[in-house]
Amino acid sequence: MAADLFAWIEALAPVVALKRSFLAYPLVNAAHILSIGVLVTTVILMDLRILGGLSAIDGRTFIALMRRLALFAFAGAVLTGASLFSVRAGDYAANPAFLLKMALIPVAVLNMFLFRHLARGWEAATWRHDPPRFVRGTAATSLLLWLAVLLCGRFIAFL
């Protein structure tokens, strides 16, 4: 039963400590905001670069740096997010904004893999040419998906 699993999570010692804490919870919360701030910013900058913006910057170096930052930020967001979820797992699991967010994240991650697959040939070649139409399509989709994830996340607290 899912309800049993959520009750078990909520009863774990570190989770109970976080639930009661005066300092730790707001700090984890702030770390989550920092992670998603870096993630969304780096994703937007990468997508804009692929879509033809920021063309004065060398694409290869820029994307390599942004991608590394985005992966670190994503890991941070998952860890801090799981901690925030754990204190009221059962409640969040019934929150429509949370559920939509959890559905959108795998779609956004799959879209990232689709981009990497489609862009392989183009990335290996020169960055001076515009990327193919379907590569730009995945970049535009990425932009919309991650912004939607951000919005859903914010709405968890208001539903």
């Binding site: 879509l51 535009a140 919309l144 912004l147 919005l151 709405f155 208001f158 539903l159």
Partner: peptide
């Protein structure tokens, strides 16, 4: 593309504006 972004932003604000009755904070 610019249109798509604009529509998305408008949709976001519309979503936000239509929801105040549910806000916890």
């Amino acid at each position: 593309r610019r249109h798509a972004l604009g529509i998305f932003a408008l949709g976001g604000f519309g979503f936000a504006a239509g929801m105040p009755a549910y806000a916890h904070h």
